[in-house]
Computed example of a mutant assay.
Amino acid sequence: MTPEIAREVQFTFDSADPGALALFWAEALGYQVQPPPAGFESWEQALEAYGVPPEKRNSASAVVDPRGVGPRLFFQQVPEGKTGKNRVHLDIRVAVGLVGEERMAALEAEAARLVAHGATRLERHEAVPPNAGHVIMADPEGNEFCLD
Score class of each variant (00 low, 15 high):
G133Q: 03
V99A: 15
A127P: 15
A132H: 10
R121M: 14
G118N: 10
P3E: 00
V78G: 10
P3R: 06
Q45M: 06
V9P: 03
G81L: 11
A95Q: 08
N131Q: 14
L90A: 11
M104L: 13
H117E: 09
L114Y: 11
G68T: 11
H89I: 12
M1E: 00
V94K: 05
A62T: 05
A112T: 15
F75L: 02
D139Y: 07
K82H: 06
E141K: 05
V135M: 03
A49V: 02
A106I: 03
Q45I: 02
V135W: 02
A111F: 09
D14F: 07
G19P: 06
A106P: 05
L73C: 06
G84P: 00
R124I: 15
E80R: 15
A28S: 01
A16G: 14
S42T: 13
D65H: 07
P54H: 04
K82I: 11
V9A: 09
P130W: 09
Q45T: 08
L122N: 07
V33Y: 01
K82S: 04
T12C: 11
T2Q: 09
Q77F: 07
D148W: 06
E108R: 15
R124H: 12
A22N: 01
L47E: 00
I136Q: 09
V64N: 02
P3K: 07
Q77I: 05
G70E: 02
M137L: 07
N143G: 08
A112S: 15
D139H: 11
P36K: 01
G118F: 10
E4H: 12
L114Q: 06
D139V: 12
H134W: 12
A119I: 11
